[in-house]
Amino acid sequence: MTALSVNVNKIAVLRNSRGGTEPDVVRAARTCLSAGAHGITVHPRPDQRHIRTADVHALSALTRECGVELNLEGNPFAPPREGYPGFLALCDAVRPAQATLVPDADGQITSDHGFDFSRDMDRLQPLVAELKAMGCRVSLFVDAGCEGLAEAARVGADRVEIFTGPFAEAAARGDAATALALCARTAREAQALGLGVNAGHDLSQDNLGDFLTAVPGVLEVSIGHALIGEALYAGLERTVEAYLAILQAPAGAAR
Results as ranks from 00 to 15, higher is better:
32 C>D: 01
49 R>P: 03
55 D>F: 13
220 E>P: 04
151 E>T: 12
144 A>C: 09
29 A>I: 14
202 D>E: 10
21 T>L: 07
224 G>E: 12
145 G>W: 10
238 R>K: 13
3 A>V: 11
210 D>Q: 13
76 P>E: 04
51 I>S: 06
100 T>W: 00
140 L>N: 13
234 A>M: 01
239 T>L: 09
223 I>K: 07
66 C>E: 12
204 S>N: 05
88 L>V: 15
192 A>E: 12
247 L>Y: 00
152 A>Q: 02
134 M>A: 05
23 P>H: 12
88 L>C: 04
200 G>W: 06
44 P>L: 08
39 G>Y: 02
186 T>Y: 03
24 D>I: 00
52 R>H: 05
91 C>E: 04
185 R>Y: 01
168 A>E: 13
2 T>H: 13
248 Q>H: 13
4 L>E: 11
106 D>E: 13
37 A>H: 05
132 K>L: 02
227 L>D: 07
79 P>K: 08
89 A>Y: 01
25 V>A: 15
23 P>Q: 07
6 V>N: 10
143 D>E: 08
119 R>I: 06
1 M>Q: 06
134 M>G: 12
157 A>I: 03
130 E>K: 10
189 E>S: 09
207 N>D: 11
73 E>D: 15
185 R>Q: 14
124 L>D: 14
84 Y>N: 10
205 Q>P: 03
